[in-house]
Amino acid sequence: MHDTVLAVDRIAKRYGDVVALDGMTFDVRAGELFGFVGSNGAGKTTTMRIVLGVLAADAGEVRWRGRPITLADRRRIGYLPEERGLYPRMRVLDHLVYLGELHGMGTNAAIGAAERWISRIGLRAHRDDRVQQLSLGNQQRVQLAAALVHAPEALVLDEPFSGLDPVAVDVLAAVLRERAEAGVPVIFSSHQLDLVERLCDRVGIVRSGRMVACGTVDELRAGGSARLTVTAPQAPPGWADGLPGVRVLGTEGPRTLLELADGADDQSVLRAALATGPVQEFSRHRPSLTELFRDAVTAETRAA
């Protein structure tokens, strides 16, 4: 299944001298959860705002099902902006109905959908409260419901999990999975990488306004190299230096983290470790998303 719904094609954006986006390119396909990660200021929010048309790109194009995106298409997207905002004095239900109608729903359909999402997202008790009376986390839930109420054909969510309690995180994760299974492409940014790794079909890592890595977590790992963790209490510092195809990533007490180049022999590492004394732990694993992300970010500092 490769029907691309939303394509971001070589988008560029500057703020004065600051280059916010520099040839940002990726696409999101029907039914997939796409995680959008990158350090602060990398350009995630800027990209999303350009997709929704609240910001104009300097160059490049956003496409919806293969053609340049229009306002009518954007009305079919559910958007959660980074800076949350609702009418503070409007009541929760009224607000959701209003946003549903603005997105083109009939009044009755909007009321029905608003009631459903209020229940689903755990706001039943606050249905008739004014938005400003709610706690921050509950306002965030209303904002999520606002992005979902009009049965969008795509979801663009900027840090949807920030500020939610663990129960709400689970509810939202389930909602996003369910939407994706219904064929809706979901793109969301997050700094909670374990969550992204657990939830997303594909991940894009952004650095300085460009996509530096994009694919399934497995594909990203394939690019990265295998890692070894060795615990050898009597090993002197620098015991692993000079082993062919091995790079020392760091040490924590008796523990050493090593990166193996392609084709390097892990058994020779084990022999070298045993030569120093007892070995209490020897494990080979693939890098987590957090590690892949760190690599990308270190590449950034090395490049700079």
Binding site: R74, R75, Y79, P81, G85, L102
Partner: peptide, 17 residues
């Protein structure tokens, strides 16, 4: 100003001109 200060304008302008 209320729409600007509450930031609701961003949600609105994603669907309304």
């Amino acid at each position: 100003v209320e729409e600007k200060s509450s930031r609701v304008v961003e949600v609105l302008l994603a669907t309304v001109r």
